[in-house]
Simulated scan of single mutants.
Amino acid sequence: MRDFHDRRSIVPPPSAANAARAALSELRRTPLLVLILFVPAVILLEQVSPEAHTLLFFLSVAAIVPLAALLSRATEAVAAKLGDTLGALLNATLGNLTELVISLAALHAGQHLLVKASIAGAIVTNTLFMLGGAFLVGGLKHHLQEFNRVSARFQASLLFLATIAILVPSLISEVDRVPAGTFSQQLSLGLSLLLIAVYGLGMLFSLKTHRELFASGGHVDEDEKPWPLAVGIVVLVGVTLFVAMVSEIFVGSVQVAAQRLGMTPAFVGFIVVALVGGAAEMTTAFSAARANRLDLSVGIALGSAAQIALFVAPVLVLVSYFVGPEPMSLQFWPGAVAMMLIATMAATLLSNGGRAAWYAGVMALAVYAIFGLTLFLLPPSA
């Protein structure tokens, strides 16, 4: 009888057992969550050895990846409980929260080059690396895949509009030799308000007045159960705080670490921050492509890029008037503008037909590799 009671005493209660099973299920669904161990490691290292910039840089990069995955999952869980319209609005607003928090930390530190590089890099990474990778991964399993080309054209058009808005301040200051100070800031402020308004009207168009044009095969797995609303909100708030902490460490170490590793903040922002911040979305896009749900992959890639260009970048310009040493403008260096334009045109061409095969992915990834190699070997000056 004593042995029986002893065995019963070590059996976890049902709630703990359910929580353990849920955690294991979530870990199997998102293997990137294993990297969550780097979060306390980088926070502890920053307290013990703040001068270890290179190690802090690598640990913070590894820590941001699982936090981004949790943010994405929590956002989906909260959005699923709010209905289609409010859920889609929340998903669109918080979909790039990781990149936004990292950029805010860099903005507070006055590293405008890193912020602009991360914005341009996120746009190019989503339109070339994520979209090309989805085409390649899906095409290797399926001979030919189809997707909603109306939705893809709409997102590509929004992206092209935002790229033009970014091109204008840089082009005017270069060609007309206009003083870059007050004019650039005033123009950037007006363009930011315009882009946010266009983004809001675009969401009204796609989610309300013409939503039938953007129908797809569905975005949720039947076997996947969303988290309870309370759990989603708690995780969303908690993980956002951790992302802010790790982002501060990342921004504080990136400059010294980049110099030691032979990189510049421009390369780190354009390539590293974009890949790390979009890791969770890339995992979802690639998995959807393998499952022959290319609508979801294309929507994530182009929708995220358009959201960064039309919403995240303008918001950062507005916030820079209250955070950081001086306001930030939308004036990018010519190389970044050229890369964003080329990436936008490539995405338009790739999504024009509504069909994809694996070699289309190879071409998009090749363009991305050209950009990455160019930035690494010949980075732009501040």
Rank of each mutant, 00 (worst) to 15 (best):
Arg8Ser: 08
Ser15Val: 13
Asn18Gly: 15
Asn18Met: 13
Ala22Val: 07
Leu27Gly: 06
Pro31Asp: 04
Leu33Ile: 07
Leu35Pro: 02
Ile36Lys: 01
Val39Pro: 03
Ile43Trp: 04
Ile43Ala: 13
Thr54Asp: 08
Ala63Asn: 02
Ile64Leu: 13
Pro66Ser: 15
Ala69Cys: 12
Leu71Thr: 14
Glu76Asn: 10
Ala77Ile: 07
Val78Asp: 03
Leu82Asp: 12
Gly83Glu: 01
Ala92Cys: 05
Gly95Val: 02
Asn96Gln: 13
Leu100Ile: 10
Ala105Val: 06
Ala109Glu: 08
Leu113Cys: 00
Leu113Gly: 08
Leu114Gly: 03
Ile119Tyr: 01
Thr127Asp: 09
Thr127Val: 12
Gly132Thr: 11
Gly132Val: 13
Lys141Pro: 15
His142Leu: 10
Phe147Arg: 06
Arg153Phe: 15
Leu158Trp: 05
Ile164Arg: 09
Ile172Val: 15
Ile172Lys: 09
Gln185Tyr: 13
Gln186Ser: 07
Gly190Asn: 13
Gly200Val: 04
Phe205Ser: 10
Ser206Arg: 00
Thr209Ser: 14
Ser216Val: 11
Gly218Thr: 01
Lys225Ile: 10
Pro226Phe: 05
Pro228Phe: 08
Pro228Met: 09
Val231Leu: 13
Phe242Ala: 11
Ile271Phe: 08
Gly277Gln: 06
Gly278Pro: 05
Gly278Lys: 07
Ala279Cys: 13
Phe286Pro: 03
Phe286Thr: 08
Ala289Pro: 06
Ala301Tyr: 09
Leu302Cys: 06
Ser304Phe: 11
Gln307Asp: 06
Ile308Asn: 02
Val312Pro: 00
Leu316Pro: 00
Val323Ala: 00
Glu326Ser: 12
Gln331Pro: 03
Gly335Leu: 15
Val337Cys: 10
Ile342Ala: 15
Thr348Arg: 12
Leu350Tyr: 14
Leu350Glu: 11
Ala360Thr: 10
Ala364Met: 14
Ala366Phe: 14
Tyr368Asp: 06
Tyr368Met: 11
Ile370Gln: 11
Leu375Ala: 05
Pro379Lys: 01
Pro380His: 05
Ser381Gly: 12
Ala382Glu: 13
